[in-house]
Simulated assay, not measured.
Amino acid sequence: MIRFENVTKRYPDGTTAVDDLSFEVAEGELVTLVGPSGCGKTTTMKMVNRLIEPTSGQIFLDGEDIASVDPVELRRRIGYVIQQVGLFPHKTVLDNTGTVPHLLGWSKAKRRERAAELLDLVGLDPAVFGDRYPDQLSGGQRQRVGVARALAADPPVLLMDEPFGAVDPVVREHLQTEFLKLQSSLHKTVLFVTHDIEEAVRLGDRIAVYGEGRVEQFDPPTKVLGAPATPYVADFVGADRGLKRLSVTPIETADLEAPPVVHLDDRLSEATARMRAEGAHWAVVLDDADDLHGWVSAEPADPADAEADATVTVRDRARRMEAWLPLGAPLKQAFSTMLQHDAGWIAVVDAASEGRFLGVLTPTRLHEALRRSIDADERDVPRADVSLETVPEK
């Protein structure tokens, strides 16, 4: 969708902002450009919509050389989101969102309908926020309006320059999560500039790590973290890159353990006898549809009562499960959930079937999953093909 061929930007004073840049962004791909201030990443982005003209080389958009396209027409085909948002202070949120459709000559009714649809898409109720002005919004809300405005004319390409950099860390993480959900349904081709390697890792399908005016590595996040191409990249991503990999390493079925499983209507005495026979201190509790309900201890609250009364069932003693995640969730979220609930394991369910239990993830298995991910990238093989050498338990 976007292709750079030997692109250089050199200013009259001799400063080279970008030097012989060549890479391609596939249709529907989100590529993050990351690097220190002054490395050329924003210049790269601004050359795509011709806010900056390259000194040499060519940039293609969907196979068309952008140098042959009128700049104004080009910009109306590309969504653009910046850190300062740039909303018009004298216009309502609804009118701000419909700016580009207005420039394209859409009718008032059509552009307001489109604006309302997009505000709802980014989590802002148009009935509540549509008639407000930018100064009546929080920073995070203004960023959402900026994203909605960029999407208003349904452009195939989005350029995003530090879009979440001006909000606090909590809001920033929330905006990142919401944007990933949005991108999963819209599949826009996105160039996303950031100076934050964690943001680049979390959002990007691939990452372009910039040195001074050139790309040092252009790879998926796991490869950048697991196999830095140069000492510069290794230094930039940091010595804790193994921890950063937790954000981009998903929970897979092979990472899970299969604990004892009981059902809500099982007799408690039989369930506890089964757990003890297997040497287990607890079991996962499922309902009749094999969906996750909770867990039960091998030691009932009142052992004498449980042994004496055959009517006591697992349902009477089961505890609801709070520490659970869907398959495919990142290991970082799994680790965070364990800490949040002070849990020695978390349950993993199949999100597609709305709760079907698949297994549990323990700290040991989480660590092994991370090691397999690193080894897989170093050897360029699927994660499932990696076997680990471990110290045998005594």
Rank of each mutant, 00 (worst) to 15 (best):
residue 36 P to L: 15
residue 37 S to D: 03
residue 38 G to Y: 04
residue 39 C to V: 01
residue 41 K to D: 00
residue 41 K to I: 00
residue 41 K to L: 00
residue 41 K to Q: 01
residue 42 T to S: 15
residue 42 T to H: 00
residue 43 T to H: 00
residue 43 T to A: 00
residue 44 T to I: 03
residue 45 M to A: 04
residue 45 M to W: 02
residue 48 V to G: 01
residue 50 R to C: 01
residue 50 R to D: 00
residue 51 L to F: 04
residue 51 L to C: 03
residue 53 E to W: 05
residue 53 E to M: 04
residue 56 S to F: 02
residue 59 I to Q: 03
residue 61 L to N: 05
residue 62 D to E: 14
residue 62 D to H: 08
residue 62 D to P: 05
residue 62 D to G: 12
residue 64 E to V: 15
residue 66 I to S: 03
residue 67 A to L: 08
residue 68 S to E: 12
residue 68 S to L: 12
residue 68 S to H: 11
residue 68 S to R: 11
residue 69 V to T: 14
residue 70 D to K: 09
residue 71 P to M: 07
residue 71 P to I: 04
residue 73 E to I: 12
residue 74 L to S: 05
residue 75 R to I: 07
residue 75 R to G: 06
residue 75 R to T: 07
residue 76 R to I: 10
residue 76 R to T: 10
residue 78 I to F: 04
residue 79 G to Y: 04
residue 82 I to D: 00
residue 83 Q to W: 00
residue 84 Q to H: 11
residue 86 G to M: 03
residue 87 L to F: 04
residue 89 P to H: 05
residue 92 T to R: 12
residue 92 T to M: 07
residue 92 T to K: 09
residue 93 V to C: 08
residue 94 L to M: 15
residue 96 N to T: 07
residue 97 T to Q: 07
residue 100 V to F: 09
residue 105 G to W: 09
residue 106 W to E: 11
residue 107 S to H: 07
residue 107 S to V: 07
residue 108 K to W: 11
residue 109 A to Q: 11
residue 112 R to M: 14
residue 112 R to Q: 14
residue 112 R to S: 11
residue 112 R to V: 11
residue 113 E to N: 15
residue 114 R to D: 10
residue 115 A to Y: 08
residue 116 A to L: 12
residue 116 A to P: 12
residue 116 A to V: 13
residue 116 A to N: 14
residue 119 L to N: 08
residue 122 V to I: 14
residue 123 G to A: 12
residue 123 G to K: 10
residue 123 G to Y: 12
residue 124 L to T: 05
residue 125 D to T: 09
residue 127 A to N: 13
residue 129 F to I: 04
residue 131 D to M: 14
residue 133 Y to H: 13
